[in-house]
Design a protein around this nucleic acid. Sequence first.
DNA 1: TTTGATTTGACAAATATAGACAAATTACTT
DNA 2: AAGTAATTTGTCTATATTTGTCAAATCAAA
Lengths: 97, 97
Amino acid sequence: MQSFGKIIKSERRKKGLFLRQVASALEVDQALISKFEKGDRKPSKEQVEKFANFFELDKDELITAWLSDKIIYTLQGEENAENALRVAEQRIKYGTE
Amino acid sequence: MQSFGKIIKSERRKKGLFLRQVASALEVDQALISKFEKGDRKPSKEQVEKFANFFELDKDELITAWLSDKIIYTLQGEENAENALRVAEQRIKYGTE
DNA sequence: TTTGATTTGACAAATATAGACAAATTACTT
DNA sequence: AAGTAATTTGTCTATATTTGTCAAATCAAA
């Protein structure tokens, strides 16, 4: 149950890599990766996939973490966050969308 | 388990009002309200509250519907939508946010 | 202190979203 | 069917949000 940022930071650490190295491997500015890790910038889906490949992580899991970041972001500071999640779940499951 | 749009459309119908009338009461362009009803524009929170007041609806319920619209929007077309919802729920409940 | 790593802040460019209006379509009414 | 009213759609501009980049600041280790 982790955020995208925490996952990629711990993976990077696990492999003993510096931001600089990940940055050059993925061709993404290292300041940006720092922000991803801290959660103050949201990566694109393509970037998420790059990270999954590079760190050899399960793509679905990483995308799930990233999506949950986005959900949490849209619900930030909302009283009705939990209810909204339940409603969304129902609507998607038995959905008339 | 309804979308914001369906709720306000059915309320409007229930009261026998035309878009024009709702538009002038809320001071919102009627084309915009039409789009809200059809779900192809997302209202601001202030607008949602205006609708709740005008139609005498429970504000929390309407906001919940609107939030769930936004969640569904961010999950559209994603394989991992349901998992992401579950993860988000856990993270918010027992959250390290 | 010096060096290297990470984080932060600020900016310009790109992208997305909002509201307004006119035109087109659809639905009633006679 | 014609005429009128209601709704929907498309487009445009303005505004806001988000993005990647760079330089500077902070932090960490030696």
